[in-house]
């Protein structure tokens, strides 16, 4: 078992910086999700831990071992690739046992652990098949089994579910989470899917442009995003942001003004963003005047779009809610659920 320390790692491809001075501490047995839009550097960061990418500067430690200059095979890691990278010229059994054979484990141990891995991932009926005879979901499981049987303390996964169809992905997501609970390896999991990140991670590191913007538990990130980017990247619908300034206890902007009972220190007079989640806004009984634009019943709840001044806000309301377009309403929000951010930098006020 081992934690992972990424210490001020920098990586540049040609002239484009992929990682800028990235530091991240991953605890032993933790499931860490690297989340961000494509091109944010999350896969590059994973590959520097795997040893498939050399860092320009900075150190990578696994446990108390500095692995920065070691080849992938010497790092004691196992990795699941986005394309699965299942060897097409080997059977499922040979694929799962490949790493163990490379480590020159005794034959009966290889056989036993391949059987265990196949059992764990539900691959027993397919052991003698070739990858071409498997479905996408089965191939994905072969790739996971091949990594898991290595018994490496660190498991790296690069968007392992992105090539599965939606239904299969739900199933595989639950399977992977169950697997992690059983084997408890230190895991780094790369994804651009915020639902995957929320549902699987012990913690999430949100990345953008080669920088880690925020590292925290999923609900912390969801409720208390560090920047406007995090708030709008995570959550569906994204967090609402309202531009304005606070003066004399009143928040006012383009076409609206309402009192705010609680406000952060030093907020008065400077351009602000008020961030609030759709499900934290309540219909009626509040101080925020709004006009209904459209109401979409979504089965479990209704999603209402309402204009506050010139800004559309998403409001999650009970499914029984009946509102008509152009109806004037009032929205309410608990002051503690509001996130105040600086308009210029997009960063949250302390």
């Amino acid at each position: 078992m081992a934690g992972i320390t990424i210490d001020r790692v920098t990586k540049t491809f040609g002239k484009a910086p992929a990682l800028r001075d990235v530091s991240l501490e991953i605890r032993e047995g933790e499931f860490m999700v690297l989340l961000g839009p494509s091109g944010c550097g999350k896969t590059t960061l994973l590959r520097t831990v795997a040893g498939l990418e050399r860092v320009d500067s900075g150190r990578v430690r696994i446990g108390d071992r500095d692995v920065t200059d070691l080849a992938p095979r010497d790092r004691n890691i196992a990795m699941v690739f986005q394309s699965y990278a299942v060897f097409p010229h080997m059977t499922v059994e040979q694929n799962i046992g490949f790493g163990l054979r490379m480590k020159r484990r005794p034959k009966d141990e290889v056989r036993r652990r391949v059987a265990d891995g196949a059992e764990l991932l539900g691959l027993v009926p397919y052991l003698s098949r070739y990858p071409a005879q498997l479905s996408g979901g089965q191939r994905q499981r072969v790739a996971v089994a091949r990594a898991v049987v290595m018994d490496a303390p660190v498991l790296l996964m690069d968007e392992p579910l992105s090539n599965l169809d939606a239904l299969l992905r739900l199933q595989a997501r639950a399977d992977l989470k169950r697997l992690h609970n059983e084997v408890k390896r230190t895991t780094i999991y790369v994804t651009h899917d915020q639902v995957e990140a929320m549902s699987m991670g012990d913690r999430i590191a949100v990345m953008r442009d080669g920088i880690i913007v925020q590292v925290d538990a999923p609900m912390e990130i969801y409720d208390r995003p560090a920047t406007q980017f995090v708030g709008s990247f995570i959550g569906s619908p994204p967090m609402n942001f309202l531009q304005g300034t606070i003066r004399d206890g009143t928040f006012s902007g383009d076409g609206f003004a309402f009192p705010v009972p609680q406000r952060p220190e030093g907020a008065d007079g400077r351009p602000l963003l008020m961030g609030v989640r759709a499900e934290h806004l309540t219909l009626g009984g509040g101080d925020i005047p709004a006009r209904v634009l459209v109401s979409e019943p979504l089965g479990s709840h209704a999603l209402i779009t309402a204009m506050v001044g010139t800004t559309p806000l998403k409001v999650q309301a009970p499914i029984q809610t009946v509102v008509r377009p152009d109806e004037q309403i009032h929205l309410g929000v608990q002051p503690s659920l509001v996130r105040w951010l600086d308009q210029a930098t997009g960063e949250a006020l302390p």
């Binding site: 795997a50 040893g51 080849a71 992938p72 394309s83 990278a85 010229h89 790493g99 490379m102 290595m150």
Partner: peptide, 26 residues
């Protein structure tokens, strides 16, 4: 696919070994 060779490297092969066991047969 280059990822096949990379996968072999993470599974205990050297660069040359990954070439010999994965890329070459394919």
């Amino acid at each position: 696919s280059h990822e096949l060779e990379e996968a072999a490297q993470t599974l205990g092969c050297t660069r040359l070994g990954a070439f010999r066991r994965v890329a070459l047969p394919l």
